[in-house]
Amino acid sequence: MAAETEDFPTGSLSRSDHVIDHVKRMIASGELRAGDRLPIEKELAAQLGVSRGSLREAVRSLATLGVLETRQGDGTYVTQLDASSLLRHLEFWAGLQEANQSVDLLAVRRVLETESAGLAAVRLTEDEFEELEKILAEIDAGLITGELEPESFIDADAAFHHRIAVASGNAALSALIDSLMTRTLRGRLWRAITERDSLGEAHADHRAILAALRTRDAERARIRMAAHLLGVEVFAADHPVKDDVPPAHQSPGGHETTSTSSASDSNQ
């Protein structure tokens, strides 16, 4: 076919980009929906006027982006197009940032989480309030006994912030928040909180946030969350970490431990 040998005009989309753009338009228009199977390769290539090689290249790119998935022997399907999967590349990018750029990520996180707290204040269910209380109660117990290690605190903190983000009811907002708090950045925060020796202060902030959420006052919840995260941001700016901490935490005794939180639970 002519399209297999002729180049696209200068300045236009490449053949594979043409396919990507077409598939995107098919999804946006509703012609293709989450879970749908794409036309067979030969038919789709002919429909778009591209070679099967260009089509495969485009499919691989869309699969990498989390838009398509190829099932061996069964064809290519549109994924569920959930925000978490599609924003995975943002998480990868955030994890590549150098330590001195962590403050920038924390500033963006502050903006996003401030809004998520405001939305969550009017949407949290009683069951979700109980979950948040349980998380903080475990920190209370650790602080009383003196057995709370920094990595355990950060895991609990991750769950606390993640659940508030989910309770915002905005899946895109929640996914953005999770994507910006990478394992690398969590490692840097582990170092900062250890050197600062401020578990009690940060926990008091959490208690203030939960109390504000319980009032159902969106603006009060935003203020409490913003104040908490601004404190983290300012400390990170004043105490830059030169060396990254490995993703696995190092306990005070030097033994490596792994996080018990899910990959999406992330914050301090």
Rank of each mutant, 00 (worst) to 15 (best):
I223T: 11
T5L: 13
T184L: 05
E219M: 09
D74I: 09
R191H: 12
D157I: 04
D140T: 02
T5Q: 10
G146F: 06
S251Q: 09
R25L: 13
S198E: 14
A171T: 09
G253H: 06
R37Q: 13
R56Q: 12
S102A: 12
R222G: 01
D104T: 14
V67I: 15
A208P: 01
L230N: 01
R214W: 03
I135D: 02
A192P: 00
A227D: 08
A159P: 06
E126S: 14
K24V: 12
I40N: 14
E138I: 08
E138R: 15
R123K: 15
L124E: 03
E147D: 15
V103I: 10
A3F: 11
V78Q: 02
H161G: 13
A141W: 04
L132P: 07
L229Q: 01
A99V: 11
G30C: 05
A248F: 08
S259P: 04
G187P: 03
A121S: 13
G169H: 04
I193L: 12
L87A: 08
L230P: 00
S251E: 08
N100R: 13
V234T: 00
R191L: 14
H89T: 10
L185Y: 03
M181H: 08
H239K: 03
S54Q: 07
K24Q: 13
T5M: 09
H18M: 06
L87N: 06
H203P: 03
V50I: 05
T64L: 12
P150F: 02
R186D: 07
V122I: 11
A167C: 03
Y77F: 15
E138K: 15
G231Y: 00
L48P: 05
D104P: 00
L185D: 05
D74Y: 12
L86C: 07
I144H: 13
T5A: 11
S262W: 12
H239Q: 07
Q97T: 15
L173E: 02
G253P: 02
D21N: 12
L173W: 05
H203V: 03
H239A: 06
T145D: 15
R71A: 11
Y77T: 05
I223E: 12
R109K: 09
R214F: 03
E43I: 10
A94Q: 04
G75P: 06
P9Q: 06
I193D: 04
A121E: 06
